[in-house]
Amino acid sequence: MINPTEYVPKSYHARVSTYWWLTRWVYLKFILREVSSVFVAWFVVVTLLQIRAVTSGPADYGEFQRWLRSPLLLTLNAVSFFFVVFHAVTWFNLSAKAMVVRVGGKRLPGIAIAAPNYAAWAVASGAVAWILLRG
C-alpha cells in the first residue's frame, strides 16, 4: 500500500455539478439511455393493467381500450416507444462491446455479436405480431 507523504499540499477540489449530464452530448445520451428504463417500467404497468382488464371480462377490456385511446396515453406511449427502441439499439450495440467471443484465437468483431441480436429482435417482434394479428 502506498502511503501519501506526510506533507499534504493545499489543493482545489471541484465538486461535480448536479447537471454534469448536460455538459456534454455524450453524457446526455447516457442519461437518456438510463431514463429509458422509466418507460420500460411504465409499459410493464400498462401490461399488468391489461392482464387485469382482459381477465375481468369484455366490458372491462373495452374500458381499458378506451383509456388507451385518450390523447394523454397515446402521447405517453409514443414517447415510450421512442425510448424503448433507443434502449434496444443501445443495448444490442453495447452488448457487442461487453462480450468477447473468440473464434480460432481471434476476437469476433462487434458487428458479428450485434447482428444476431438484431436478428433475434426481428424474429421475436414478428412472432408476437403474428400471434396477435392472425385470423
Binding site: 428504463s37 420500460v40 409499459f43 400498462v46 401490461t47 391489461q50 381500450q65 388507451l68 385511446r69 396515453l73 397515446l74 406511449n77 409514443a78 415510450s80 416507444f81 424503448v84 427502441v85 434502449h87 434496444a88 443495448w91 444490442f92 441480436n117 433475434a120 429482435w121 421475436a124 417482434s125 408476437v128 405480431a129 396477435l132
Partner: peptide
C-alpha cells in the same frame, strides 16, 4: 435488459399505438 429490448418495442407499438389508433 434483454427481454425489454427484444419484446417491449413490439408490445408498445401494437397495444400502445397501432391498435388504439
Amino acid at each position: 435488459g434483454v427481454i425489454s429490448a427484444l419484446l417491449l418495442p413490439i408490445h408498445i407499438l401494437l397495444f400502445g399505438l397501432a391498435f388504439p389508433l
